[in-house]
Amino acid sequence: MLYPDTVEAEILVHKPWFVATMFGAVFAIFLAFNLTSTSFGELMRPVIGEPSQSGLYGRFAIAFVIALLFVLNVVLIGFASLRVQIAIVWFELLLLFLAFFATFHLSLPFIWEKLPFLISQGVVTTLYVSAISIVIASLIAILGAVAKLSTNGFAYAIASFYTSFFRGLPLLMQVYLIYLGLPQLGFVVGAVPAGILALSLCYGAYMTEIFRSGIQSIDRGQWEASRSMGFGFSLTMRRIILPQALPVIIPPTGNQFISMLKDSSLVSVIGVWELMFLARTLGQKTFQHMEMLISASAIYWMLSICLELIQSRIERHYARSKVR
């Protein structure tokens, strides 16, 4: 939340000039497209007669009705409380998306048939690959951040080389390097461990930078107070600095987790049957690509929403000491 003022602002969507502008804009946009031949035209048949022959009047009437409904909707939502507003707007946007996907004429039975396998094989693989990678990446990040802030030349050099290398190379290349390169050195790694290793190293590098900047954002006075009480380095880090850095670290880390969830699809190139891989292959035989891809996307989205919820819970937990 931004800093909330105690004086209530006038509600923007109830100001006449705003309502008028909104109406004008929506009206103009829909007037620009000829919607008489779409399902909007069909819906308006009682008013405008045969849509294809209604001409300019039909276009005008459709745009007018859409603009009116839109403005009415916004103005009414303006009366609701914050929570209700959020819920309604989410619901309406979702409805619009569903309407959009309905135009693909997807075969629902096909989706129902394949969904269990998509989840039991794909989602489970995606989830455990990302979950393990996230944990390892976080551990690497803490070590990397401390190394990058240390005055030890070896530690700094290794950590900075590592972050530079793994942030600089495409993730796909890293996956290949580990899966195909390590066997050259005599270590044969399975596809899943190789994928996990690649994801951990890559995201560990990004998160090293996040952790480093989080640690650096803490005031020097905290270090001094902690040291002046006799706390050693690791105690200061664990009990004083990291807990305060977490609120700074968590939002970008949440971003990384969500992005890793989807990047885990890259490990399919080495034959891991994760969600995206299955979505592409299951639809191939019957040319029902869109069904599977859209289902996979929906699943990714739902998983991301779960992560977002977890993130906001954690953020709220750490916000305690900030409110007066």
Binding site: Q222, A225, G230, P243, Q244, S321
Partner: peptide, 18 residues
């Protein structure tokens, strides 16, 4: 050992805010 025997109070308090 030295630091735990020497208390220090700072201009800006430096309490642990969390």
């Amino acid at each position: 050992d030295v630091r735990s025997n020497v208390g220090m109070v700072f201009q800006h308090f430096n309490l642990f805010p969390h």
